[in-house]
Computed example of a mutant assay.
Amino acid sequence: MTGVWVLLGVLVLGGIAGALMRARNGRIRAAKPGAPTLPGRVSGALAPEGVTLVQISTTFCAPCRHTRAILSALADKTDGLTHVDLDVTETPEVAQALSVLRTPTTLALTPDGREVFRVGGVPRGQELLEALRPHLANA
């Protein structure tokens, strides 16, 4: 009987953990104050005006491919928006400097390198566009 209770407890905890992870996936989070200095590889990729969406991804990441498709399409149809995909498989120090713990992570950066917000996981296109509107109006 004890084994049944243990199994039931594990299933409940697993369900709660899964629900929390699903709720956090793709959610837009405001930038933390005192953002770190950008590595040269990132600052060199920033567009001179507008907002640059910097996608941090890895080679064998399936959600990264989906994110790349969403962000590329969004950048193609939105004035003042640029998409850059950085694969950190070879350069993990970029992910470490930017405090990226998972891939894909998308950073919205201004031309001066200020982080506006970040999204962990696959972003939702319409929500992302709504969050970007105030920053693109200045472009």
Score class of each variant (00 low, 15 high):
L7W: 07
L8Q: 02
G9E: 01
G9R: 01
V10R: 03
V12Y: 00
V12D: 13
V12P: 04
G14C: 03
A17W: 00
A17F: 01
G18Q: 09
A19W: 08
A19K: 05
M21F: 01
M21E: 13
R22Y: 00
G26R: 02
G26S: 06
R27P: 01
I28K: 01
A35N: 06
P36K: 08
T37G: 05
L38A: 14
G40V: 04
V42G: 01
V42Y: 00
A45F: 04
A47V: 11
A47N: 11
P48W: 13
E49G: 02
G50N: 04
T52N: 05
T52R: 09
L53I: 04
V54N: 00
Q55G: 01
T58D: 08
F60P: 00
C61P: 01
A62G: 07
C64Q: 10
R65L: 13
R65T: 03
T67I: 07
A69N: 08
A69Y: 00
L71E: 12
L74Y: 11
T78A: 10
H83F: 10
H83D: 04
H83I: 02
V84I: 13
V84Q: 12
D85Y: 08
D85W: 08
L86P: 01
V88M: 09
T89W: 11
E93R: 13
V94T: 13
Q96Y: 04
S99F: 13
V100L: 11
R102M: 09
R102I: 10
R102P: 00
T103E: 08
T103V: 11
T103K: 03
P104L: 09
T105H: 10
T106M: 06
L107M: 13
A108Y: 00
T110Y: 08
D112R: 14
D112Y: 07
G113H: 07
R114K: 15
E115G: 04
V116E: 07
F117K: 10
R118G: 03
V119C: 08
V119Y: 05
G121V: 08
V122A: 12
Q126S: 15
E127M: 09
L129W: 01
L129K: 15
A131N: 08
R133V: 10
H135C: 08
H135L: 12
L136W: 10
L136N: 15
L136I: 12
A137F: 02
A139F: 10
